[in-house]
Design a protein around this nucleic acid. Sequence first.
DNA 1: ATTGAGACCTGTCGGC
DNA 2: TGCCGACAGGTCTCAA
Length: 274
Amino acid sequence: MPELPEVEAVRLALDPVLTGARITRVELRRADLRTPFPARFRPDLEGQVITGLTRRAKYLLATLGSGDTLVMHLGMSGSFRAETAEEGDRRQPGPHDHVLLHLDSGATVVFNDPRRFGVMDLLNPTALAAHRAIAGLGPEPLSPAFDAAALARACRGKRVALKVALLDQRIVAGVGNIYACEALHVAGLSPVRRASTLASAAGRPREAAERLVRAIKAVLTRAIIRSGRGDYRSDRFRVYDREGRACPRRGCGGVIRRRVQSGRSTFYCPRCQR
DNA sequence: ATTGAGACCTGTCGGC
DNA sequence: TGCCGACAGGTCTCAA
């Protein structure tokens, strides 16, 4: 479930539980997720006060009194839940409850991840700054820094398909497979056109870049609002997972198609996305 | 330097 | 009912 909007919803839900709390005990119910937990993970986490919870792209970052940062990524199937002390006493950890953070408030925050593509790591400021994936992230799509000029610049000369470029976290950070499809449909742009077509030869943004930036911001903003409300109706998408259905654009009359681009499903309307 | 393919895991769903 | 393949919202690594 987790692209930027879902991760932001998780952050909003966890922030009141985590920020200001002290971690009294850490339970690791296995030795690794996508990567092994570092040896210092548990000892250096226990006793720390969480001073804030922020999000960068699809990463959740909990800052600690020690100066370290607890880096969390949900991968494909990760989720968090917060339990009160009473709930925690009653309930046995489930099969994929891998990490339990017990807090001095009595609450417990549980990380569950069946596929274990998620990540939890503890980094000092130097290691955080040097983190390959995080340091290389492109602009936050909802920030003013992400505009048509920035997108066109990042796509300049890129021969990859536009949809594939949107999934490249160095170009724009936090967009995933669903919202890449959705934004391209809103913008009326074909997922298979070359990313470079967003920029003129001089690298200036074309009108398509303006439309795409507006579409990305609109799609993500709406999704954050919906995620916050816990709105997961199956018809919440315009094209994603809707192969064979009618294109929702008024007057289009096209049919949604599915194709595979670099191993991921793309859903789009061949009629109104050019 | 880019780019595609495969790998990492488990669960679910549809078809036979 | 049961088995089997295809597929899933993400990244990483490796070879061309």
